[in-house]
Design a protein around this nucleic acid. Structure first.
Lengths: 193, 193
DNA sequence: ATTTTTGTTGACTGTTGAGTCAATCAAAAG
DNA sequence: CTTTTGATTGACTCAACAGTCAACAAAAAT
């Protein structure tokens, strides 16, 4: 079985397994062995490819952020008006991919990780900046005079809805989440123009 | 030195130490020894009074919720109009006591704990229900036709602002947090009446 | 004065889990 | 056919830590 070129497959299997196990456990309290088992390999191999548990976590976090970023970019491509752009961003947050229970749960754990690891903090900051810049770009075109406050509110709302979803654990209602935030956006823009 | 009646003092010292250490570490990854040391006692004593680490965490969480609940109730007493009531609730969330960096950080960890422990989940659910009921009571008097959605949005906003504060770690700007949420409330109510 | 109760410690135990390492296997290269 | 290289394992080491326990200290009760 040992063929050449296994590395990328193993890496991504381990990353997926990490997200899945973190989601299942609801915390970073998962062992390398659990992750490896879920990925169908030995714990030694996980260390072989990633070096340490921390690196595995970071790789998983990077993966989630990359998937998220790609989805947002894809959705933005099809948006024509500034309002479309806002909707595209919001809807991306709650897409089937990103709003999966394990992923939501993993997000929460990554927020915790970011309090401990500088690398994780850096990753999350980049994500935050990109999200805000995307929001601001659309809001500026809409001539919202308090665009910065609105952007921060949207961002906080997204995080808040996520955290609450992580707790409830019933099947995620993405529709309601999107409508909640969209309603806010509508009200906020009406109130000020 | 061993006088009678030490128990309540030790318990509260340990609870305070737990919050402080969780806040410092940014996660539940603190040892009983660390907590005990911070409280100025031995690890054995912590076990003596609480039985297990889980129980210590739960006691700390209960303490935060009790303090929070008391503050909200106090603020509500002085509110006269429904709008005052909303403001009172929001302002309580960001009071000097509740919005301390360690407490904010501990909150985030408690959300994680609630994904693992049923007891923690129950505690948090009670807090959520009480918060929502307080919000709804005020919103109903304001004749908001979409009161439930507004209540959920406020709650999500509070959580979102908290989580972001936990990350930034710079000195908390409670003023801005309150104004962010108050602005939302104003817009939401104007938009619909 | 002695007994009981309450508070308190720190050493000890058992377990768990991260990371290492030598050895193995099979394909690819020469 | 032999050598190299990448993939892979599982046993092993070592440290950390939760929880236990026997023992001690001082006040309170008798």
């Amino acid at each position: 079985m040992p063929k050449v070129g296994m590395e990328p497959m193993r890496r991504s299997a381990l990353v997926e397994a990490t997200i899945s196990e973190i989601g299942r456990a609801g915390s970073l309290d998962v062992t390398v062995s659990q992750i490896a088992k879920k990925a169908g390999v030995s714990s030694g191999l996980a260390h072989h490819y990633f070096g340490s548990k921390d690196q595995i976590f970071l790789a998983a976090m990077r993966h989630i952020l990359v998937v998220f970023g790609a989805e947002v970019r894809g959705a933005l491509l099809m948006a024509e008006t500034p309002n479309d752009r806002l909707q595209a961003i919001i809807r991306s947050c709650f897409s089937a991919q990103n709003f999966r229970p394990e992923v939501v749960s993993a997000w929460l754990s990554f927020y915790v990780l970011a309090q401990q690891s500088d690398d994780a903090k850096r990753l999350l900051r980049i994500y935050h900046l990109r999200l805000k810049s995307n929001l601001m770009y659309a809001l500026k075109q809409l001539k919202a005079n308090n665009d910065e406050e609105i952007a921060d509110t949207i961002a906080a709302l997204i995080d808040g809805v996520y955290i609450r979803q992580a707790l409830q654990r019933d099947e995620a209602n993405a529709q309601r989440a999107v409508s909640l935030i969209s309603t806010y956006v509508k009200d906020a823009l009406e109130g000020q123009t």
